[in-house]
């Protein structure tokens, strides 16, 4: 371990002890944060994984429908049918803060009705049930394909939100764990060692001082005795 040089005096000792207190408190807090993050993360990841499996299944089905649709029509017809119409899909993005992990929340814009449900919002955003192309040139398979996609859409939105949050959380957990570890295995032991060495040096100084005093006292006593002896001899 890289050793820091410090002056062995009380000022330093006080400072270090203060640092140690702060480090310990920080360590405890970070540890709590990590544990709580982990708990939330595991819940989130489980639901996300389930959701992903569901979405992938549904998307596979939608893809199959689409393949069928494209098989029954000319490619140009499909493309031109899908090219037209619809205003671009817009989402409202807000933020949610879970344990200092800030992640976006996606919401379909609502029409402003109070008793509006999510399903209504989906309908509104995706063009209320009507398909964005004429009936004549397009086969029914395409309708089914689009319907399948529309059905997945709310789930897809949820997946995007949750998965994104899970990824962000994973990063935060890793960061927090690093900080916990560096406090636990580097900073705190280093401080303890420094404090111990300062205390030891100070005790050593104290002992040195004591022996010096004793020695000085001995010398003074000896000098006094000598004086007395001299005085007696003179009489």
């Amino acid at each position: 371990m890289a050793k820091r040089r410090v002056n062995p005096n009380r000022m330093e000792l006080l400072k270090l002890k203060d640092q140690l207190r702060t480090a310990r408190r920080g360590h405890k807090l970070l540890k709590d944060k990590r544990d709580e993050l982990m708990r939330l993360f595991l819940d989130l990841v489980r639901t996300t994984a389930d959701l992903r499996i569901r979405v992938e299944d549904l998307l596979d089905k939608a893809n199959q429908e689409m393949v069928l649709a494209r098989a029954t029509m000319q490619a140009a017809v499909v493309e031109s049918a899908l090219l037209t119409g619809l205003p671009p899909l817009q989402l409202e993005v807000s933020e949610v803060n879970t344990m200092s992990v800030i992640s976006p929340v996606f919401k379909l814009p609502s029409a402003g009705n109070e008793d509006e449900t999510d399903a209504d919002a989906v309908k509104l955003a995706l063009g209320s049930g009507d398909l964005p192309y004429g009936m004549t040139s397009v086969s029914g398979e395409l309708d089914q394909a689009i319907d399948a996609l529309r059905e997945v859409f709310p789930l897809l939105l949820e997946l995007a939100e949750k998965e994104n949050q899970a990824m962000l959380m994973a990063m935060e957990i890793e960061r927090t764990r690093r900080r916990v570890n560096s406090l636990e295995y580097v900073l705190i032991p280093e401080l303890l060692e420094l404090i111990a060495s300062i205390t030891m040096k100070m005790e050593e100084n104290e002992r040195g001082n004591l022996t010096r005093l004793m020695k000085v006292k001995d010398m003074i006593v000896e000098a006094r005795l000598e004086q007395k002896k001299q005085a007696k001899l003179q009489f």
């Binding site: 689409m66 899908l82 989402l91 995706l126 063009g127 689009i146």
Partner: peptide, 19 residues
């Protein structure tokens, strides 16, 4: 904010109908 899809044409064309 908008929503985008990137991929091969066959897989993604349908999303156009969702805007």
């Amino acid at each position: 904010h908008k929503v985008g899809v990137i991929g091969d044409l066959d897989s993604i064309i349908g999303y156009r109908a969702l805007g």
